[in-house]
Nucleic acid binder design. Sequence first.
DNA 1: TTCCCTACGTTAGGTGGATG
DNA 2: CATCCACCTAACGTAGGGAA
Length: 368
Amino acid sequence: MKTSERANSQPTVSDVARAAGVSRATAARVLGGYGYAGSEARELVLDAAKRLAYQPNQLARSMATGRTKTIGVVVADIENLYFARAIRAITDTANANGFDVVLANTDENVELERSAVRVMLAKRVDGLIVSPASSVDVDHLVEARNLGCPFVLLDRRVPVLKADTVAIDNFPAAREAVGTFVRSGHKRIALVSNSRFEGGQKYLTSPVRERLEGYKAALHDAGIQNDPKLALFGGGNNEQLAQKLRKLCQSDERPTAFLAVTSAVALVILGVLRDVGLSVPDDVSLICFENADWTVAVTPPLTVIAQPIKELASAVTERLIARLQGDLKSQAKETLLSATLISRGSVSIPQLFESRGRDTGNTPPSTS
DNA sequence: TTCCCTACGTTAGGTGGATG
DNA sequence: CATCCACCTAACGTAGGGAA
């Protein structure tokens, strides 16, 4: 059956070639921008393509090349601001390099992640960008690699995979944040996360684990004994986290400072503080990871640890594209980007001190 | 039921003609 | 003979039709 005889079919290279009076191959080379083509033939082909509103058939192209020019992105939570911003930058970078993006959400669930990777492989994506839910259950990623589908890890490190990774250097960032509390005179400092903690620290995602380690290191630096009750984990449930926080805030062992591992957790903390009648920074100091827009719109504006999400996501995409464009031999590379503490107004000297101060900028609070 | 063949649209390598 | 250009065609992976 001839192409032109099929009903409802879009014009193909054959149609363009026939309309232009050249061979199929010549038309294909002009339209594909490869190989030789005379200027006269080129003009005829482009004119015919315009007349027929020709659009390349990506399915056929993929069949011939074995490439789909598609990148699969598997992240834990697309509602999370951090990932939303990352996806935006990944899409921009991918598009600029001629790639499309297919997205999957896993809700931090390894089974969903496994299934998402399977779907991506079935769709024959050229490569994957993954923010793995687990640093232990990664057999599906090993399988993807064995099937010739390269991947780069976004934000989370999984040493056992020896994979290209682009992440934030969380340890010093958390250490600096806690150090800021310490320098203001805080001794009871809590770390708050909404992660699951069953099975212990090794089951935490690497950013949370590294922030926890940075937190502990800063306490150690200051000679403050680590109180396990002050590391709070919500188990993926905001209400459960709020309950734990409420209980802690109403106890005699109430912390005077909170380090939130995400801006979403900071929102939960602010809600609880309002409920129990505590204010920031007079009663409690607060620093959170993520420079979310709302953190400057609240009173006081929050001191945050800003992460270079755009750079992170661009770097991860560029790394994958480099792999796809032939860099299959070079060793896996781990890139760590620095986070920056931005001092605003949510850290002050704890209540037990006679005088109060507040960080109003980059200068340390007065202790006079 | 199983096996083989063809169609789909494009790419890419091989071939050969025209020209200087 | 070298270079440029255009044509021809195998191959890609899968669905579906027809033959055995």
